[in-house]
């Protein structure tokens, strides 16, 4: 599965829209087991991303991804800012100057970046619980929609988990029974990137 510059831009725009549309849901999820800012922070960050897309031109998928990376790193803050930022940065590095990216390889690089930075493994109730199965599905040949399905399932699986990374880990057992906001935002972005609803 390959994607050109226009495709990446369109996908990122859809992701930005989806994040804005789900701001309150993400805030509420983060209020339950965190500090309630996840939706707001991501929405703010992607707002700047859209501004940059509106005001500049980008010649390669790598250029788009690098802009997203640096914007998220500098504007989102919190745990998810550097994590998502690193994810996009690794994808950008992989993309280099090429006119197209391999979506699954990009996702795999992104996952690697998040794990390097955050040291989380599957089952820790984090972004990794949504992104790892998505990458796995992609490697197994799934469509973009199938990848988004896997992310959804992975996110849903976090409800039962006790958090071991990030702010929610302070809750211990009390973190169980809640959907992880970061896993959910990953699923939302992948669904939007895939072009479907959420």
């Amino acid at each position: 599965m390959r994607c050109d510059t226009a495709g990446v831009i369109a996908g990122v725009r859809r992701a930005a829209e989806a994040v804005a549309a789900h701001r309150d849901e993400l805030v509420d999820l983060d209020k339950a087991i965190g500090d309630g800012d996840h939706g707001e922070n991501l929405k703010r960050g992607f707002g700047f991303v859209v501004d940059a897309l509106d005001s500049s031109t980008f010649d390669t998928p790598g250029a788009v991804l690098k802009m997203v990376a640096t914007t998220l790193i500098s504007k989102v803050g919190g745990a998810s800012g550097p994590l998502y930022g690193t994810a996009f940065l690794r994808a950008a590095t992989l993309a280099g100057e090429a006119p197209e990216i391999d979506v699954v390889a990009a996702l795999q690089a992104a996952l690697g970046g998040i794990v390097d930075r955050g040291k989380a493994v599957v089952g820790d109730k984090t972004i990794v619980d949504a992104l790892a199965p998505a990458v796995e599905a992609g490697l197994g040949g799934a469509t973009l929609a199938g990848i988004a399905d896997a992310a959804d399932e992975g996110a849903a699986s976090t409800v039962a988990l006790v958090a071991r990374k990030g702010r929610a880990s302070y809750l211990g057992q009390r973190s169980a029974g809640h959907l992880d906001p970061g896993a959910r935002s990953t699923a939302i972005m992948l669904r939007a990137f895939a072009g479907g609803g959420s």
């Binding site: 500090d35 309630g36 800012d37 790193i73 500098s74 803050g77 800012g81």
Partner: peptide, 11 residues
Amino acid sequence: PGAVFTSPTPD
């Protein structure tokens, strides 16, 4: 100073 209850950014 970051946003309220949000860590500052690297920049």
